[in-house]
Every structure is written in structure tokens, then in C-alpha cells.
Design a protein around this nucleic acid. Structure first.
Length: 496
RNA sequence: GGUUCCGUGGCCGAGUGGCUAGGCAGAGCUCUGCAAAAGCUCGUACAGCGGUUCGAAUCCGCUCGGAACCUCCA
């Protein structure tokens, strides 16, 4: 909290100093996945963005309650009445219970996020677990005159809402009149008073599997409603941060504001944050375009678009190297560069833990290097404080890495930094990398064997049996490792 | 058509009205049995055309190119 954090607020279209409603507590809600299919890499980007924000807020002293929902209700594929229910469709296709579908993809989602070293949220509520709250919310909105029933469905009345000063469209910058004029012809519009009105409760057709009884007959809640109900329940009528992908800005988040405001009389969110899209050849990665790939395909390299396998930490590093509000274009070249960069960092992580401070009167303090290190530590914070600029943060991390390497290579004596700066370097480098950016060392198998082979290498080296020496080196290379033959010691490292 | 955003060196990708991130690739040097690693040095980019300014890649306008949203979507 000593850090003046600025965040870009979609609502005001500018960076604002972050001031929580009840410091040191922070309430953060992020729209989670619809668990009817595997999450792809584009989905992952958004979740990793907010994982990093969660980590950073915690790092600077906030107590964060992080809520990320699971959408498991079975919303329609299209907007019309005849649209299929996503989860129900998968259930029929695979002859499973809808909840088996939900369970399968929820487990996969959790496993994927863990692989990327994303921290679990504080609460992960599901839409089906909050049916009572949603039905109550619909009732309240009808009572307030902001919603109406029609053929067993209930719609939010946007014109009425705006007459009361709601300001529908303010998040996405849309003008109501424009929206009214440009709404396309869609099915199921007849029962709405206005094409813009959105469903908060939907009547279930006979073949619709996922259904719940309600005062308006069997049905299921509208897509936007669950987020309003669950965020209010766990974070209050007004909370600090709401995040999600850019593609949810309209209409989903716009509708959330309308519902929240309609229910409680105040705008639910102080800071709206949106992560930009992951693109492939300049186009948004999405399932419908067929250009998406799954994390699993990435780790094995088993996708036509992939020239090789990339590890979870490589991908995390790759994403952190860009700003969350910029689109990020996927390419093998970029991933390969990220792999090298990440491994350098991982080597630094491995090495720094072995470094210890030793006082030495004969070594002169190097004020310039000390200032450089202190500057980089502050620079990292400044970058993250500037709307979570992880790219610049990483740049500062590489400055720290340089000194870590110099110490390790004996090109720099710890005493030149002084005990305080040495400790700052060591602590900050590990803390920033592991705790804030969530980048861990990906250990390869069989470290014990590696140490044994290294002992052999030393022996051969002493005896100047260079043929044997080269053989050992070749063996290491096969394992994705390299031998570092330095003046003062011999060690191994991950091949970059 | 409407709303919004982007166009940076070989590649990826930050960025502020003047002090020119970072990673990868490339060149040179130190070190070294050879190599690798590490450190050091180098390459001076901001789509095009106008304008504002002492000064713009950064502000404004236009042109060209690309994207997102307007429909389920992270």
C-alpha cells in the first residue's frame, strides 16, 4: 500500500490512482469460463492477467478477496429462442449428464491454471449454485419496474432504466439511439418491448435439459445475471475491481452495470479492467474461427500451427512481456524468443539461491552498481504501478539478472555491493520473479544424476581427457542442459 | 454502417513532447583445450502526408493498412 498504483479504468478511459473502498481490503471479481469445453490459450491470457494483478495487489500489502465464477448454467448458443444450450448440446452429444460435462471441463480448467502457476481465487462460485439469488434478483427488478415478463421469460427494460438515469452504454461508449437504430434482426425479439432489452430469465423449451422452476415457469437465468448476483453476494453492492476479456465489455459488462444499478441503486464497480485479445496472424483467437489451440497442444507441440512444444512458464513469460491492454500476436518466432528469455531468468533463479554475502575489506564499494540495482528495484515497482506494465517490469528484472550473473560468475564481489544492496538484489529478484510474476523454475528430471555426471566431468577435465569431457558435454546437451565451465567453478544450467 | 483501438529497428514488444525500455537474432571483444555461459561494445526504428511547437515516434488533421466490439465468446 506504500505504492501509488494506477489502473486504467475502462469506465473513465483513463488511468486512475487506485483507491479501494475499504483499505486494506480489496474486492476483485473476474468473469470466469463457461465450462462446456476446454479453455484455449486466449482464455488463459485473461486469467493470467488478473492472476498477476491479484499477486501484485497482495505484494504491495492489500488483502484481496478474489472472486472468479464458473458459468455452468447452459446458456444458449445464439440469441434466439431456438438456440441450443451449450452445455446441454455437449451432454447430448456425449450421452452424459450436463453436470458431467461441467465437472470434466471444470477439472480441466483448474488443472490448466495450476500448470500456468495461477493462484486459485478466494471464492469460485458457480451459477447453478446461486439459483435462489438469481430468481430473487429477477423478482426485485420486476418489482422495481425495471423488468417485465413475457411468455415465461423476463427481460430487463433498458429504456425504462435509462429514463431513470441509468446510462446504459457508458462503459462501452455506445449511444442508446445508435444501438436502437442498428440492432439487427434476430429471432425471439417479438416478445421484447425493445430489441435492446436483454433476458434475465429465459423460458426453457421442452427439450432444454438444464432448467429450474421459477415464478415464471421452468427456465434458466440470463447470462449476465449470475455475475451481478455472485459479485454482490461476496463483495457487496459496490466493490473495487471487475475484470474480464475485452470481448465481454459489451454487452455483458454493460448489462451487469444495469442490473447492479437497478438492484441496489448504485453502480456496482469502481474500476473496470479489460484484458485484450490474443491473436493469431492478426486475428482474434477463438473457437469459432478455428485458430485456437489448447494449452495441452502447446505443451506437446501437437498442433499444425506449432513448430515445437512450449512450456507453461515460457508461455507465461511470453504473455507478461506485453501489456495486458495490447493485443498480443502469437507466433513461433516470438515464443522461441520467449523461451530463451525465460530460461535465462530461470537460470538466474536457480543460481541466486546459492549466493551468499561475504564481507571483504579489500573490495571497494561500487556506488554506481549499487544505485543501478536500487534503481531497477524501484523501476520494477514503478512499472507495475503504472497500470500493471509487466513488460517494463521484466526489463528491470533483466537488469537485476545481470548483477546476479556477475556475482555468480565471480565478475563482481558481493562486498562491492555492500550487504544491504546485496540482500536487496537477492530478495527482490526472487520475490519479483516468483511471487509477483508467478514465474517458477521448471525443473528437469533427475537432478541427482546430473550432479554425478558433473563430478565425472570435473575428473576428466582434471586429467585432461578431453574426448571424455566432450562426451559428457554431449550427454548434457541431450538432456537440454549445458555445462558451464568457469574459472572458479564448474556448474550446469538449462540450455537457453 | 456505428463505436473503439492499433501500425515502432531483422523478429517480438514497452514507451515519454526534448534525456532514444527489454527480450530474441546478428557483429566484435574479454574469458577459454575447444565450446557454452556470463560480462562489455555496436546497430539509432517509430506507416505516409500535412500542421502545432524552439523541438514530435510521442499532440492535431488527413490518407493508407490492420484489428476488436455491435451476435455466444477471455
Amino acid at each position: 500500500m506504500t505504492q501509488p498504483l494506477k489502473l486504467y479504468n475502462t469506465l473513465t478511459r483513463q488511468k486512475e490512482v487506485f483507491q479501494p473502498i475499504n483499505p486494506p481490503y480489496v474486492g476483485m471479481y473476474v468473469c470466469g469460463p463457461t465450462v462446456y469445453n476446454y479453455v484455449h490459450l486466449g482464455n488463459v491470457r485473461t486469467f493470467l492477467t488478473f492472476d498477476t494483478l491479484f499477486r501484485y495487489l497482495t505484494h504491495i500489502g492489500y488483502k484481496v478477496r478474489y472472486v472468479r465464477n464458473l458459468t455452468d448454467v447452459g446458456h444458449l448458443v445464439g440469441d434466439g429462442d431456438d438456440g441450443e444450450d451449450k452445455i446441454g448440446r455437449m451432454a447430448k452429444l456425449e450421452k452424459l449428464e450436463p453436470m458431467e460435462i461441467v465437472q470434466r471441463y471444470t477439472l480441466d480448467f483448474h488443472q490448466v491454471m495450476a500448470t500456468f502457476n495461477a493462484l486459485p481465487p478466494s471464492i469460485e462460485p458457480s451459477a447453478t449454485g446461486h439459483m435462489v439469488e438469481q430468481i430473487e434478483a429477477v423478482k426485485t427488478l420486476i418489482d422495481k419496474g425495471l423488468a417485465y415478463e413475457s411468455n415465461g421469460s423476463v427481460y430487463f427494460d433498458i429504456l425504462r432504466y435509462n429514463e431513470q438515469g441509468g446510462g446504459y452504454g457508458k462503459l462501452s461508449g455506445r449511444i442508446l439511439d445508435d444501438l436502437l437504430n442498428e440492432t439487427r434482426e434476430l429471432d425471439g425479439q417479438a416478445e421484447k418491448r425493445n430489441p435492446l432489452d436483454f433476458a434475465i430469465w429465459k423460458n426453457a423449451s421442452p427439450e432444454h435439459i438444464m432448467r429450474w422452476p421459477s415464478p415464471w415457469g421452468d427456465g434458466f437465468p440470463g447470462w449476465h445475471l449470475e455475475c451481478s448476483c455472485m459479485s454482490t453476494k461476496y463483495l457487496g453492492a459496490q466493490f473495487d475491481i471487475h475484470g474480464g476479456g475485452m470481448d465481454l465489455k459489451f454487452p455483458h459488462h454493460e448489462c451487469e452495470i444495469a442490473q447492479g444499478n437497478g438492484l441496489t441503486g448504485k453502480d456496482p464497480v469502481r474500476y473496470w479492467m479489460h484484458a485484450n485479445m490474443l491473436t493469431v496472424n492478426g486475428q482474434k483467437m477463438s473457437k469459432s474461427l478455428g485458430n485456437s489451440f489448447l494449452p495441452g497442444e502447446l505443451f506437446t507441440g501437437s498442433h499444425p500451427l506449432l513448430e515445437q512444444a512450449y512450456s507453461p512458464m515460457t508461455v507465461r513469460f511470453f504473455m507478461l512481456q506485453s501489456h495486458y491492454r495490447s493485443t498480443l500476436d502469437f507466433s513461433n518466432e516470438a515464443l522461441r524468443a520467449a523461451q530463451k528469455g525465460y530460461r535465462r531468468l530461470a537460470n538466474g533463479l536457480r543460481v541466486i539461491k546459492t549466493l551468499a554475502y561475504t564481507a571483504d575489506e579489500s573490495v571497494a564499494p561500487d556506488a554506481k552498481k549499487q544505485a543501478d540495482i536500487q534503481g531497477a528495484v524501484q523501476g520494477f515497482h514503478d512499472a507495475l504501478n503504472d497500470d500493471l506494465n509487466t513488460a517494463v517490469g521484466i526489463a528491470n528484472l533483466f537488469t537485476l539478472l545481470k548483477y546476479v550473473n556477475m556475482l555468480y560468475m565471480n565478475q563482481l564481489q558481493p562486498a562491492a555491493l555492500g550487504e544491504e544492496t546485496f540482500a536487496l538484489l537477492k530478495h527482490s529478484f526472487v520475490d519479483f520473479t516468483e511471487n509477483v510474476l508467478g514465474l517458477l523454475e521448471e525443473k528437469t528430471e533427475g537432478h541427482g544424476v546430473v550432479e554425478g555426471m558433473l563430478a565425472l566431468y570435473r575428473e576428466y577435465k582434471e586429467q585432461k581427457l578431453y574426448d571424455k569431457v566432450d562426451q559428457v558435454r554431449a550427454y548434457f546437451k541431450q538432456q537440454g542442459l549445458v555445462i558451464k565451465d568457469m574459472k572458479h567453478r564448474i556448474d550446469w544450467a538449462y540450455e537457453e
